[in-house]
């Protein structure tokens, strides 16, 4: 019973990733693509969590944490590039 529910949830997560990939390729503006990339990261974390419940293992937890950290930093870097035009500022301007 629980395996069927997990497989259904995994199916819809993969469907959501495919929709985000469509937005990533087709997206008319750059912020659409950045949000699609962040959405793919979140859905990947959820998919790994469901697979780790399905296999009854805790070996993938560090993978989820690392994927969350890297997706967070990547989204921040893209947002800074879109807003400022420069990713890492060289001197303090305060």
């Amino acid at each position: 019973m629980i395996e069927t529910l997990l497989m259904i949830a995994l199916f819809f997560l993969v469907l959501s990733i495919l929709a985000a990939v469509y937005r990533l390729v087709k997206g008319p503006s750059i912020p659409d693509r950045v949000q699609a990339l962040d959405n793919i990261g979140v859905n990947l974390i959820a998919g790994i969590a469901i697979i780790s419940i399905f296999m009854r293992t805790s070996a993938f937890f560090s993978v989820m944490l690392l994927l969350g950290i890297l997706s967070f930093i990547g989204t921040i870097a893209f947002a800074r590039f879109l807003e400022r035009g420069v990713v890492i500022e060289s001197e303090r301007n305060k």
Partner: peptide, 21 residues
């Protein structure tokens, strides 16, 4: 991979602050 995670934290500091500080 430990070094890469450490470098990711340093990159986050460089992103939110600036290089000099």
């Amino acid at each position: 991979i430990g070094g890469l995670a450490f470098a990711a934290a340093l990159t986050l500091m460089f992103l939110s602050y600036d290089v000099d500080s």
